[in-house]
Amino acid sequence: MSLALDAGSAPATLPAQRSRGYWSRVLRRLSRDPVTLACAAILLLILLAAVFAPLIAPADPFKGSMIKRLQPIGAEGFLLGTDELGRDMLTRLIYGGRQSLLMGVLPVVLAFGIGTTIGVIAGYVGGRVNMVIMRTLDVFYAFPSVLLAVAISGALGAGLNNCLLALTLVFVPQVTRVAESVTTQVRQLDYIEAARMSGAGPWMIVREQVLGNVLGPVFVYSTGLISVCMILASGLSFLGLGVKPPEPEWGLMLNTLRPAIFQNPLVAALPGAMIFITSICFNLLADGIRSAMDIRS
């Protein structure tokens, strides 16, 4: 009896055409998820507004008027009212997105790069190297992130760059820990053993076999950190450790509008609403990407 083949008969549901790449399929699944799409659209809108702020903002963000302080929402000429110095709120919210998004995203991007590198090394090498790296990072991990951010930022001194550095340092241990645990899991799987059997060196195995399986989960986790980072950054600005006035930034604006909470609560809450909307969009986006990346389900 000749060799019996199961080629072609199964799985019968698959189209005969060649499979598309992994990421193109993730995108196709994402495009079918209305919540994620809506979040992405909102974030894109906020980002575009921030980038093209000088073109679309109706007023000058720094120019105030003593007579037109704390105008309510919908006042003549001020769509979203004015702040405690009579500056146009809409303009300042649009400009504020620049700093806020920068401070929310950049530290996470940096932490993603640094944390993944350290975590993959710790996870793949294992043993003592792993122990030294992970125990060192545990020291940072032991502090609440708010306290750590304030402490580092305070020690380095106020200012945008120090603030970014402090936030990056806060997130590196968290990203590292996730990258390390995913790598450790992946490393034990048979396909890594098979790759080792093929005689490939560790770098080639990490680059081609490990990284593809680690980046996804770490990316999703990091996306979720953006909202935390935005809130932390706002907090730092609120405490006077981040952006300096009169520079518009949502956290700082929330702080300076604080006394106005009883006179014009709606206007005073606007920067907080922006922080809320942006961070929730990042969170939902992270969730959407997570489920889209789990193609097998």
Binding site: M1, L5, S9, A10, A12
Partner: peptide, 15 residues
């Protein structure tokens, strides 16, 4: 002797 194998694979319950 070669084993008398059943060719093909079990059916897909979705189709």
């Amino acid at each position: 002797q070669a084993l008398p194998a059943i060719p093909g694979a079990p059916p897909d319950l979705a189709a």
